[in-house]
Computed example of a mutant assay.
Amino acid sequence: MTLWPDTFTDHLAPGTARAATRVLAAAGLTVTVPTAGPVCCALTYVSTGRLTRARRVLRRTLETLGDVEGPVLVLEPSCAAALRTDLPALLPDDPRAHRLAAAVRTFAETLEQYAPHWTPPRLDRPVAGQTHCHQHAVLGDAADRRLRDRAGLTGELSGGCCGLAGNFGFEPGHHAVSVACAEEQLLPSLRSAGPDAAVLADGYSCRTQIAQLSGHRARHLAELLAEALAPDEGPDPM
């Protein structure tokens, strides 16, 4: 299967990819990454209305990626949502776009579909944090809930939006709105969480907002599971 090197993970949070690869290895799965050149879901251009540019970036990505064999694991929920929905909508006449969109899987979906008999490590602790708004709206989190349950992670993640929303919260004049969004659900849920709660957020923007506004270190579900593996399980590929 292919591990999608989204910009957030590739440049800002490579530890997430290493953790996911280690968990997948423990589950008997191996991944490869595209090597012919950079790939991009074009989310930045879609979210800022530059659709002509987005189509150009997506066509270049399809050329670089070539034929997709097997699932494409996308760790960043916003990128997975863009590839699954925006890609075929922007390039409706390109069969490669539809094949890639159909191949996209989240981390939890990958484990559930391709390693259904794997038993995740037990963490047995409550969780707090954020379900990415793109995942909530586009992808759904049913597989994530089932994986958390199997790992003994209890409790609900907050809905709504963290307020950072890609680059929105960083732009001049947006800070107050960004914080207000976080205060709607996310920050209250973190304040009410117990000291033993694992702070969980699969989205890079969500983790960044949590760190800056609450001081908590949020982690991707892959990171939580990787930390609980035995030392001889899923050796670090790096």
Rank of each mutant, 00 (worst) to 15 (best):
S47K: 14
A27R: 10
V46P: 09
R122H: 05
P92K: 10
P120N: 00
T21A: 13
M1Q: 05
Q185A: 14
C181S: 12
H11N: 09
E156W: 12
A198H: 15
G28D: 04
L90N: 12
E227D: 15
A20L: 02
R84Q: 06
A13H: 07
G169N: 02
P116L: 04
A89K: 14
C206W: 15
G140A: 07
G15L: 09
T32I: 01
A20N: 06
A97T: 08
A54P: 08
E183A: 02
L73A: 08
N167Y: 04
G37M: 14
C133F: 04
H134P: 04
A201S: 05
R55I: 06
P120T: 02
T9A: 11
D124C: 04
A165C: 08
R55A: 12
L225D: 04
S78N: 06
P14H: 13
G28T: 13
A182P: 01
H175Y: 05
R145S: 01
L51G: 08
L24G: 09
T9Y: 06
A182C: 00
A101K: 03
A180C: 03
E223T: 01
A108Y: 12
Q212V: 08
E69Q: 15
L186E: 02
Y114F: 10
P14R: 08
G49V: 13
G155N: 13
V177F: 11
T61N: 11
D67M: 11
G194Q: 03
L221D: 01
S158E: 10
P14L: 13
P34S: 09
V127R: 11
V31N: 01
A26M: 12
T64L: 05
P172H: 03
E171P: 04
G49T: 07
G66M: 13
Y45Q: 15
P188S: 07
A103V: 09
A230R: 13
A180S: 05
L200D: 10
A128W: 15
R60T: 15
R56A: 15
D202F: 08
P126I: 00
A180T: 02
R96I: 11
L187Y: 09
E184H: 14
A222L: 00
H175L: 11
V31F: 08
T52R: 09
T21K: 09
V72F: 01
R150H: 12
G194R: 12
F107G: 05
E233R: 08
A42S: 12
Q209N: 12
L157N: 11
L164E: 01
S205G: 13
P5F: 00
A218M: 03
T9P: 03
P120F: 03
Q135P: 06
T2P: 01
P77C: 02
V23N: 04
G203C: 10
R148A: 08
D94P: 03
P38M: 11
H175C: 02
C133P: 07
P77S: 01
A226W: 06
A218I: 00
A165T: 11
R22P: 13
F8C: 02
P235F: 07
A115D: 00
L75H: 03
T7A: 15
E227W: 10
G234E: 08
